[in-house]
């Protein structure tokens, strides 16, 4: 990792940590001013990550998807991108700052333990479909993470949400949170589906087969089917909203495992970098 890359990496990490701490403080002391500052901190962290991605892209001559570290960074970038869009265009989603800054900071912590060096792209991997595949994988994961964030807020309970309303008065109705979660689940389901299809097209070009039940392929399909099950659970059984929200958090963890954890356990041709 170059010196300039590490400056922007640690800058983003510190800003996200401050944003999370700030949002907690604003909750405790009911200070709207601090809460507004935390929004700006996340926005600046997003800017720092964008610059970091641009430097890495320029340095390695390929989009930052290739190593496990880069894949995680891109997923964090997409999460913050969705957050920035939601909060700039729809002010009522400001409250997302708490889970998003926490999850993003934890993921940055995880990524800091990984080898951070960039690596050149091998000939096997060089294909436009790889970039489509990796973009949809990371944006899909980001969407599931946002869904899990809404679920986490819902699971805090209605009483806690009343105190949250004091710092973010325009936040969505408590009862409507599962619906917003559901929308992001469907959005993520679409992106993850495109990820699987584009990945299979890329695998065909690179390895001569569309699908080979490689552990990452299997776990990606498991995650996708789990979300399909989640949607059907909601339609076929009158499950409680709390149960649905708990399931979306579990499913998001499974997505994180499918994307970044499988390589720790299985031998896979998808090993990063």
């Amino acid at each position: 990792m170059t010196f300039s890359e590490s400056i922007f990496f640690w800058m983003a990490a510190v800003l996200l940590a401050l944003a999370f701490l700030g949002s907690l403080l604003s909750l405790i002391f009911k200070k709207t001013g601090i809460f507004k500052i935390t929004q700006e901190l996340v926005f600046v962290a997003f800017g720092a990550l964008t610059i970091l991605g641009a430097i890495r892209w320029t340095g390695t001559a390929h989009p930052p998807f290739v190593t496990l570290f880069e894949s995680m960074l891109t997923a964090i970038w997409f999460t913050l991108f969705i957050y920035v869009i939601l909060t700039r265009w729809f002010k009522r989603f400001d409250i997302l700052v708490i889970p998003v800054s926490l999850f993003s900071f934890l993921m940055m912590g995880w990524s800091s333990s990984l080898p951070m060096e960039g690596s050149p792209l091998s000939q096997t991997l060089t294909n436009t479909w790889l970039f489509i595949h990796a973009s949809f994988a990371t944006s899909g994961a980001a969407s599931f993470l946002i869904a899990a964030s809404f679920s986490a807020i819902y699971l805090l309970g209605q009483e806690k949400l009343v105190s949250l309303k004091k710092i973010a008065p325009k936040m969505p109705d408590y009862q409507s949170l599962p619906k917003t979660t559901f929308n992001f689940v469907i959005f993520g389901f679409i992106l993850w589906g495109v990820m699987i299809v584009s990945g299979s097209i890329w695998a065909h070009a690179a390895w001569g087969r569309y699908w080979a039940w490689d552990p990452i392929e299997v776990w990606s399909l498991i995650s996708w089917l789990l979300y399909a099950l989640l949607v059907h659970t909601r339609m076929a059984f009158k499950i409680s909203r709390k149960f649905f929200c708990s399931l979306t958090i579990f499913a998001a963890l499974l997505v994180a495992f499918a994307l970044w954890g499988v390589g720790y356990i299985y031998e896979t041709i998808h090993s990063y970098g």
Binding site: A228, L229, H232, T233, M235, A236, F237
Partner: peptide, 10 residues
Amino acid sequence: STRLAFFLIA
């Protein structure tokens, strides 16, 4: 039924 679909996906 959607319930059957649920069990089959499961």
